[in-house]
Nucleic acid binder design. Structure first.
Lengths: 339, 339
DNA sequence: TTGAAAGCGATACCAT
DNA sequence: ATGGTATCGCTTTCAA
């Protein structure tokens, strides 16, 4: 039961009769210490269980080895999965991850960014967020930022994006190819570039096939399960309605399906549905969502790599990685049959 | 486009012609500054957008305002929900949350604890983890810890627990009351106190009703969806099997059901299932799991409150909060019918 | 009430 | 290859 007191670098230096500078160099693998002295220091530090104080180290280095993640909703499995992969990748490089939950709210997002700055985080990964913040505010922070699925006008940032236009396009095309003529669209957050671009893809697909888009078939959403349920309730109250729907994400689609089952509405018999994300739950029997994969694993890894590269080589050129969306056909879509 | 330079407390002090100490006191609400001077300082700091460097502050205070959360799996919605509520509660008190993913692995868990210590986190909330670590190691860290759903022999810790014995008991009782005579149990991690106690509850219930427990009906699990699927595959390959199952968590139950649907095995007609957690997805039509609620919202809030109390009043007495499990009957259980 | 100065624990530059 | 020391930005004790 040896009381494990917290040693400081000064303790170690004194006990060994060397200077703190030497200890620091030895432990950090920096040059400037003789091999055997280095060995000795390392061994000794290990033995007494000395652990450097990250806070102090960070203060003198000016930054802490933590990467912040800011996204809309921890409870959305898509973000959980993304977090998982990013964490896994960053860990290899010795970084810890800190997550901030913006609740898709601009205010909260801004506050998180402030916190990140105060903590001197090494970098920030920003996901699809409600609105583009003032670009100056970000740039003024002078902290590396990687955007995921979010475009700014400015080019001077690293980003990894799904080709969202294409995602919207192939989702819609899939339905068109199945013979659907009237196709609705349930949005994500309207200020987000993801939603805007997917919507453009949807519009373009309709246009290509000379299909008209009805104003009332574009339904607002918020990417939450509950909203999906509500959308369904409203939807089936209508007299006239589309025979197919492109839904903003799997979570809403799940909520939508939940309502359908409640009302004993058969999917895909009465309505075809395509959504986005391909979360694990989407593949469960009973759902088997036809969905567009965002390639979450790749997305997470790429984001992490870009981040590390930016942090460690601040002068490297900015990269923009575009991921190809992938249609995963399962059981929520089928050929349109005239009724 | 005013370049938002980073000001330090010295800048502010100099610009105002006062000392740094005074600025510090004014901004921290500590006594020792005249009211109007305080006003003036606050206003000025606000105006130029001065933000104290948390790192420096933390270094001199000896701790940073971050609470660490260590749990087994970010991708388990139960933990996502817990994170959400804890974050929400801690935010009110001015703390930020940092999450560590142990992957239910002892090694990784220990490393996370080390990281937490190096970062001088204000406190640590530990969830159900694979194994009890050496109690000295924890105590030596000298950092406030709140245990959630995990008991140590030692009493000198705050904790919030579900009454897990009772949880196992009522889950089993529910099945017994439905007439089931042979009831199986799919474990969580065997080293975790949660699993052990629930298992005890299960055993006790059987015993009370003079039902015998078969060795082979106790099936190992790992709390992941995939494992649930595998368990089902193995289970239905058997000739003789229980008519009901208590499953370690909803995620495994979901995996189990997934397999059943695949094989067109009717639940609850052919088998009754009770699990634990009551995650949001458990309530979806198509699943409607009969499950034991862990009262995640309450659990998160209590944990956060205990944490803040401990951090801010280190001498307050240790508390142990026990939550009552609640049976939520839905569609995966029904009366046993002789076949 | 206010200011001066000593830490907090590490890093990094400048000597030797 | 080593040691001495200023520095990072803030808090806090001690004097005035």
């Amino acid at each position: 039961m040896k009381s494990k007191k917290k040693y400081t670098i000064t303790d170690v230096a004194d006990m060994l009769g060397v200077s703190r500078a030497t200890v620091s160099r030895a432990l950090n693998g920096t040059s400037g210490v003789g091999p055997e002295l280095r060995e000795k220091i390392i061994a000794f530090a290990e033995e007494i269980g000395y652990r450097p104080n990250t806070l102090a180290r960070s203060l003198s280095k000016g930054r802490v080895n933590i990467i912040g993640l800011i996204f809309g909703d921890v409870r959305n499995p898509f973000y959980s999965e993304l977090t998982f992969y990013i964490q896994k990748a960053l860990e290899r490089y010795g970084y810890t991850v800190m997550i901030f939950n913006s609740e898709y709210d601009r205010e909260r997002e801004a506050r998180s960014i402030e916190t990140a700055r105060e903590l001197c985080l090494a970098g920030l990964i920003l996901f699809t967020v409600v609105t583009n913040m003032e670009e100056e505010q970000l740039r003024a922070m002078n902290i590396p930022i990687v955007f995921v699925n979010r475009t700014l006008e400015l080019q001077n940032y690293d980003s990894v994006l799904l080709d969202n236009f294409r995602a919207g396009y192939i989702a819609t095309m899939h339905l068109i190819e199945l013979g659907h003529k009237r196709i609705g669209f349930v949005c994500g957050h309207q200020q987000s570039s993801v939603t805007v671009q997917r919507f453009e893809g949807y519009r373009q697909a309709l246009k290509t096939y000379y299909l008209t888009m009805q104003e009332e078939d574009v339904i607002p959403g918020d990417l939450k399960m509950k909203r999906g349920y509500e959308v369904a309730e409203e939807f089936f109250r209508r007299e006239e309605r589309p025979s197919a729907l492109v839904i903003g994400n799997d979570l809403m689609a799940l909520g939508f399906l939940d309502c359908c089952k409640e009302k004993e509405i058969e999917i895909p018999e009465e309505l075809s549905i395509v959504s986005f994300d391909n979360i694990d739950f989407a593949n469960l029997n009973g759902f088997k969502l036809t969905t567009i994969s965002q390639r979450v694993e790749e997305m997470g890894e790429k984001a992490a790599e870009l981040m590390v590269r930016r942090v460690e080589h601040p002068e490297s050129e900015y990269k923009r990685i575009i991921l190809e969306p992938q249609l995963v056909v399962r059981d929520t879509t089928r050929e349109y049959k005239e009724t």
